[in-house]
């Protein structure tokens, strides 16, 4: 069903485009609390760059880097970052996800502390969304068999 299809034009264009797409995705994640964008949109763009790599290159080569175990670890890591920041706020004496509690650890302006907390949350959301999108696409194009290694 899925066969290797080498096309020089598609592979060259993808080699140029994929780093630019990933750079834009990191910009969207890191700048999400000042401008439109954020963790979900940036994670979607980052996942789209890996999906483009999956379409343009050999799927078996990509699968060695994106095995199901690594995807599940990345999904859980993003949720873990989110929950850890939220619970840290509780341990510091404020509500869940009230970032102004970090002022006890980092003594700077309260608006800057809130922006820092939002940035950490959005990095976690971006990691989870990226891994979920790549995992959905891999399971979709390989009949859900890709963790057994029989594409």
């Amino acid at each position: 069903m899925i066969r290797l299809y080498n096309d020089l034009i598609i592979q060259t264009v993808c080699r140029i485009m994929i780093p630019l797409i990933q750079l834009f995705a990191f910009y969207v994640i890191a700048h999400g609390h000042y401008s439109p964008g954020g963790g979900f949109q940036g994670g979607c763009i980052l996942g789209a760059s890996f999906i483009l790599m999956l379409i343009a290159y050999d799927i078996n080569w990509i699968k060695r880097r994106f095995s199901e175990n690594k995807n599940v670890i990345l999904i859980a890591l993003g949720v873990f970052i989110y929950a850890l920041v939220g619970l840290l706020c509780i341990f510091l004496g404020k509500e869940y996800l009230n970032y102004s509690a970090f002022q006890k650890l980092i003594p700077i302006d309260i608006a800057r502390v809130r922006a820092l907390g939002t940035l950490i949350i959005e990095i976690g959301v971006g990691i989870t969304v990226m891994a979920v999108m790549v995992s959905i696409f891999l399971n979709l194009i390989t009949f859900g068999k890709h963790e057994k290694g029989e594409v």
Partner: peptide, 26 residues
């Protein structure tokens, strides 16, 4: 609604089209 437009462009036009094409191949 610029934020909604950004989400629509990233998810609707980008990811879900790739998912549909991946589903059509099956």
């Amino acid at each position: 609604a610029v934020d909604v437009a950004f989400t629509e462009a990233a998810v609707g036009a980008g990811i879900s089209t790739a998912f549909f094409i991946g589903a059509i191949y099956q």
